[in-house]
Measured scan of single mutants.
Amino acid sequence: ENVVSAPMPGKVLRVLVRVGDRVRVGQGLLVLEAMKMENEIPSPRDGVVKRILVKEGEIVDTGQPLIELG
Results as ranks from 00 to 15, higher is better:
residue 22 R to E: 10
residue 61 D to W: 13
residue 25 V to L: 05
residue 11 K to D: 06
residue 42 P to Q: 06
residue 48 V to P: 10
residue 20 G to R: 09
residue 39 N to W: 07
residue 30 L to I: 09
residue 11 K to H: 10
residue 37 M to D: 12
residue 12 V to E: 00
residue 60 V to K: 02
residue 49 V to H: 01
residue 44 P to W: 03
residue 67 I to E: 07
residue 32 L to H: 11
residue 11 K to C: 00
residue 20 G to K: 05
residue 18 R to M: 09
residue 23 V to N: 06
residue 5 S to P: 14
residue 38 E to V: 14
residue 9 P to K: 05
residue 32 L to C: 00
residue 40 E to G: 15
residue 32 L to I: 15
residue 34 A to H: 08
residue 48 V to G: 13
residue 69 L to Y: 11
residue 19 V to W: 03
residue 42 P to E: 15
residue 32 L to N: 03
residue 35 M to T: 09
residue 29 L to V: 12
residue 3 V to L: 13
residue 52 I to V: 04
residue 55 K to Q: 09
residue 17 V to C: 01
residue 33 E to M: 10
residue 1 E to M: 00
residue 64 Q to E: 13
residue 3 V to F: 10
residue 47 G to S: 10
residue 54 V to Q: 06
residue 3 V to Q: 14
residue 36 K to H: 08
residue 7 P to K: 07
residue 63 G to D: 04
residue 66 L to C: 00
residue 70 G to A: 13
residue 47 G to D: 12
residue 53 L to W: 11
residue 52 I to R: 10
residue 62 T to N: 12
residue 38 E to R: 09
residue 3 V to R: 08
residue 37 M to R: 09
residue 66 L to I: 15
residue 47 G to C: 01
residue 34 A to Q: 07
residue 62 T to V: 03
residue 39 N to M: 14
residue 1 E to G: 01
residue 41 I to A: 13
residue 32 L to T: 08
residue 14 R to A: 14
residue 19 V to G: 14
residue 44 P to K: 15
residue 25 V to C: 01
residue 57 G to W: 08
residue 66 L to M: 08
residue 31 V to R: 10
residue 5 S to V: 07
residue 16 L to T: 03
residue 63 G to E: 09
residue 13 L to Q: 07
residue 4 V to N: 10
residue 57 G to N: 10
residue 8 M to A: 05
residue 68 E to F: 03
residue 24 R to C: 01
residue 64 Q to H: 12
residue 7 P to C: 01
residue 68 E to T: 01
residue 24 R to M: 15
residue 38 E to G: 04
residue 35 M to Q: 06
residue 2 N to P: 12
residue 51 R to Y: 11
residue 56 E to M: 08
residue 13 L to N: 13
residue 19 V to N: 07
residue 66 L to Y: 04
residue 29 L to R: 00
residue 70 G to Q: 06
residue 33 E to Q: 09
residue 51 R to Q: 02
residue 67 I to V: 06
residue 66 L to R: 00
residue 36 K to W: 10
residue 64 Q to R: 14
residue 6 A to G: 05
residue 52 I to M: 07
residue 7 P to H: 08
residue 29 L to Q: 06
residue 8 M to E: 09
residue 57 G to S: 08
residue 60 V to A: 09
residue 46 D to K: 02
residue 7 P to E: 09
residue 41 I to H: 14
residue 37 M to Q: 07
residue 30 L to E: 01
residue 69 L to F: 09
residue 58 E to Y: 08
residue 70 G to F: 09
residue 36 K to S: 12
residue 48 V to L: 08
residue 66 L to S: 11
residue 64 Q to A: 14
residue 23 V to R: 09
residue 37 M to H: 15
residue 21 D to E: 07
residue 21 D to C: 01
residue 29 L to I: 12
residue 35 M to V: 09
residue 11 K to T: 10
residue 17 V to Y: 02
residue 12 V to T: 11
residue 8 M to F: 11
residue 59 I to A: 03
residue 18 R to Y: 11
residue 39 N to H: 11
residue 60 V to N: 03
residue 46 D to N: 11
residue 52 I to T: 15
residue 29 L to A: 02
residue 37 M to I: 06
residue 11 K to Q: 08
residue 13 L to K: 12
residue 44 P to E: 10
residue 18 R to E: 13
residue 56 E to G: 02
residue 14 R to I: 12
residue 35 M to H: 10
residue 61 D to V: 11
residue 22 R to W: 12
residue 33 E to C: 00
residue 50 K to N: 12
residue 46 D to A: 06
residue 54 V to F: 05
residue 15 V to E: 05
residue 10 G to S: 04
residue 55 K to V: 09
residue 65 P to F: 04
residue 12 V to M: 14
residue 63 G to H: 11
residue 28 G to I: 08
residue 12 V to I: 11
residue 30 L to D: 00
residue 4 V to T: 12
residue 11 K to A: 06
residue 57 G to M: 13
residue 25 V to R: 14
residue 37 M to Y: 07
residue 38 E to S: 04
residue 50 K to G: 08
residue 30 L to N: 02
residue 44 P to D: 03
residue 1 E to W: 01
residue 42 P to H: 08
residue 11 K to L: 13
residue 44 P to N: 14
residue 17 V to N: 14
residue 68 E to I: 13
residue 67 I to L: 01
residue 46 D to Q: 04
residue 20 G to Q: 10
residue 20 G to L: 13
residue 15 V to F: 12
residue 14 R to E: 14
residue 14 R to V: 11
residue 61 D to I: 13
